[in-house]
Simulated scan of single mutants.
Amino acid sequence: MKSMNDELYDFLLEHKEAITEEWLSDRDKKDGSIYSKDAGEWSEQMLREQNSLTNLTIASSLLEDQEVFENNKKNWAKLVAESRVSSRTPIYEVLEALSKLRHTFWRFIEMFVEREGNRVLRSNNINWGIVINQAFDDIIVEFTKKYDELMNTRLVAQQSLIEELNAPIIKLNSTIGVLPIIGDVDTTRVQAIGDFVPNRCVELGVSHLFIDLSGVSVIDTMVANHIYQLMQVLDLLGIESTMTGIRPEIAQTSVQLGLDFSKVRTYGSLQLAIKKHFKEFSVN
């Protein structure tokens, strides 16, 4: 004989599409949101399919075998988190949607209770209140964990791209690279360049790096000092460095700082430096 939990589970599965339809009909209009009533046919179909899985997941919390709920919860959280990160949906919109679904779910549980009448005991109602609400809380926690994990992965990837764009090393051949520094260079940016470039040179197998400053308008004393330190770090790694595009004011700043660039090759232009380097290389 089936327990009341099993009967409610069967009832919710039989009505899971109806739960979805009622939940969808309760949407408001929100500009740019996939949960908007006018988001479009594709968004509505996606929500319908995902909500069907949500209903199955919540209903499975009523089963005696809790492993089924745990598996459903993880699968649901992964699917929905990936979808919401991809659509750039903020967490608060997902939580609002789940709150509305929770209310819809309880309306259908009330329908079941009314249908069964005296067969539903007070203890059943209390138990369902605990189990169903806990299930919603559990999927929210699982979703936010997965969402946060995916967002952090995306942020790390974006930070890596920003660092690469901030200090792009262009390889001329298997061992020679060019680092064109363009635009305003402040202390924060030059520190980021100093942290990124040595590791990137090692990753790319660069043994000679041309650092071109022709695209830099102004360099203060702190920035000049950081560039000098960068070249020292490259030297310790066995990576030869050549500075090109040095403007008169940059040279004056370096002299005023007492920075010793006597061991560093410097050229007025990147074109001249590359031309002379490859000429020497071909002679050798």
Rank of each mutant, 00 (worst) to 15 (best):
L56C: 07
T244V: 08
L270E: 06
S52R: 12
D137A: 03
I170N: 01
E163I: 04
H208K: 10
E17Y: 08
E14T: 14
P248W: 15
V197R: 03
E149H: 05
Q134Y: 12
A77K: 06
E163K: 07
V197P: 01
N72A: 03
R189I: 07
L209G: 05
D148L: 10
I211W: 07
G258E: 10
N5Q: 07
K263G: 14
T188I: 10
N55R: 12
D235C: 07
E240P: 02
H208L: 11
H226C: 15
Y267F: 15
R115F: 11
S43I: 15
Q191V: 09
T187E: 04
K146F: 15
I211G: 13
L8W: 01
L213S: 02
Q50C: 13
R27Q: 03
E116K: 03
E7Y: 06
F105H: 05
S25N: 02
R88H: 08
Q134W: 06
H226V: 09
E240W: 09
M231P: 05
D31G: 09
F105P: 00
Y228N: 14
F11V: 08
L234H: 04
E163T: 10
F136W: 09
L172C: 01
W76T: 02
L56G: 03
S207C: 03
I193T: 08
V283F: 13
A251W: 07
L56K: 09
I176P: 09
S86Q: 12
L272M: 14
D186T: 03
T104C: 06
N5F: 02
G258N: 08
H103Q: 14
Q271M: 15
